[in-house]
C-alpha cells in the first residue's frame, strides 16, 4: 500500500511542478506579446530612456568583439534614444552571424564592417536584403607592430627587412627553431603565414586564437620589456595605453591584391570601414536609417570613447553622454547633414 501511495504522491508532485512551469510560461507569454522581437535587452547600459517611443520599433545594433565597435554603438544608441526617440538595444554577436541577422531584420544595423567581401556579395549585391550605409570614418590599418621600446633599441625593425634579419630574437618555445610572429583573433583577415614564406622571413605564425589571449601575451612581454612582434590594427583604444610602432611591409598595390592568398607579398590593404543596415529599415524607421547613413567620425573619436569605458571604467551611457555633449556640431551633422560616401570592401577581404 505504501508503495502505491508514494507513486501517487510522486505523480502529484511532478504534475504540480509541471503545472507551475506551464502557468509561468502562459502568464509570461501573455505579458509579452506586445513586446515581440528577439533577444532580451541586457548588459548594454542605458535602457529605454526614449520618451514617446511607444509605437516605434526597437533598433538593434551589433557589438563585435573589439571595444571600438562598442564605442560606435553606445554613442549611436545615445543619439537615437535622445534625439530620435527610438528604443535601442545592443547585442553581442560575431561578425559573420551578424550578416544573416541583418538580412533578416533581426539586426537593424552594424556600424563597423572590416571587409567581408563575400558576405557583401551575398547580401548586398546578391539578394538586396542588406544596404551599404556608407563610410564610417576611421581607416582600418592592419599590419605588423612591435612595442616602441623595441623599435627604439632596434631601429632596423622599421621595415620588414629588419625583421628578416632579427628573427632570432623572437624565438619562443612555441615557434622554435624559428622566430615567433603572434596573430590574434581568427575572425580577422591575415596573410601573415604567406608573407613569411614569400618575403623569406624565418618566422612561424602562432595563432593566439582570440584577441584576449593575444593581448594578454603582448602585455606580459611589454611588462618585461621583451621582444615581441605581432599582428595589430588601428583604431584600437589599447594604443593609448601601450606604445606600439608599425613595421613597414612592401606597399600594397592593386597588382598584389589580385594575387591568390598564398602568393601575397605586400602590406594589408587600407580598410575603409563601412556601415550596413537592413534593407527594410528606411521604411520601418526612416529617421534611424537616415541617421545611420550619416553617422561618421574619426579613429580618435572612437578611441576616446573606448578608452573612457575600458580604462577609465566610465559607464557606457556616461561615456556616450560625455562625447555627445562635447561634439554638438558633429552630432548635428548626423541628424541633419548628408549621407556618407559609399565605399565597397575590396575583394579578398
Amino acid at each position: 500500500m505504501t508503495e502505491i501511495r508514494t507513486i501517487h504522491r510522486r505523480r502529484r508532485l511532478a504534475l504540480g511542478a509541471l503545472g507551475v512551469a506551464a502557468a509561468m510560461l502562459v502568464s509570461g507569454c501573455n505579458a509579452s506579446t506586445s513586446t515581440g522581437g528577439a533577444a532580451s535587452q541586457t548588459g548594454s547600459g542605458s535602457s529605454g530612456q526614449a520618451a514617446g517611443s511607444a509605437n516605434k520599433p526597437t533598433i538593434t545594433l551589433v557589438t563585435n568583439s573589439w571595444e571600438g565597435s562598442l564605442a560606435n554603438n553606445v554613442v549611436a544608441q545615445y543619439v537615437i534614444e535622445h534625439d530620435l526617440h527610438y528604443p535601442v538595444k545592443l547585442i553581442d554577436l560575431s561578425e559573420i552571424p551578424a550578416w544573416p541577422a541583418t538580412a533578416k531584420g533581426q539586426v537593424s544595423a552594424v556600424l563597423e564592417e572590416w571587409g567581408h567581401a563575400n558576405q557583401y556579395q551575398r547580401y548586398v549585391v546578391g539578394n538586396h536584403q542588406v544596404i551599404n550605409a556608407g563610410q564610417e570614418g576611421p581607416l582600418g590599418n592592419i599590419g605588423w607592430y612591435v612595442p616602441t621600446y623595441l623599435m627604439k633599441a632596434h631601429p632596423e625593425l622599421a621595415t620588414w627587412k629588419g625583421v628578416q634579419k632579427d628573427w632570432k630574437m623572437f624565438v619562443t618555445p612555441q615557434s622554435a627553431p624559428q622566430g615567433q610572429f603572434l596573430d590574434g583573433s581568427p575572425s580577422y583577415v591575415t596573410n601573415d603565414a604567406a608573407l613569411m614564406k614569400n618575403l623569406h622571413i624565418n618566422m612561424k605564425v602562432i595563432y593566439a586564437g582570440s584577441e584576449a589571449a593575444q593581448l594578454t601575451e603582448i602585455k606580459t612581454a611589454y611588462k618585461q620589456k621583451k621582444p615581441i612582434i605581432f599582428y595589430w590594427y588601428t583604431p584600437q583604444y589599447e594604443n593609448a595605453i601601450y606604445k606600439f610602432s608599425q613595421v613597414k611591409l612592401p606597399p600594397w598595390t592593386t597588382a598584389c591584391a589580385k594575387l591568390p592568398a598564398a602568393k601575397v607579398n605586400c602590406a594589408y590593404p587600407p580598410y575603409d570601414l563601412y556601415k550596413i543596415e537592413n534593407a527594410k529599415l528606411p521604411s520601418t524607421a526612416p529617421a534611424v536609417a537616415a541617421f545611420i547613413k550619416r553617422f561618421h567620425w574619426t579613429s580618435g573619436d572612437q578611441d576616446q570613447v573606448a578608452y573612457d569605458m575600458a580604462v577609465k571604467k566610465m559607464s557606457d551611457t556616461a561615456a556616450a553622454k560625455a562625447f555627445v555633449s562635447s561634439h554638438a556640431s558633429l552630432v548635428s551633422s548626423w541628424l541633419h547633414g548628408s549621407d556618407t560616401k559609399i565605399v565597397v570592401p575590396p575583394p579578398g577581404t
Binding site: 541586457t42 548588459g43 562598442l70 547585442i91 553581442d92 593581448l215 602585455k219
Partner: peptide, 16 residues
Amino acid sequence: GTGGLGDSVLQALNVV
C-alpha cells in the same frame, strides 16, 4: 546574441 551573464563574460574578455 542572447545577452545575459555570458555577455558579461565576453565583454570582460574584450577588454582583458
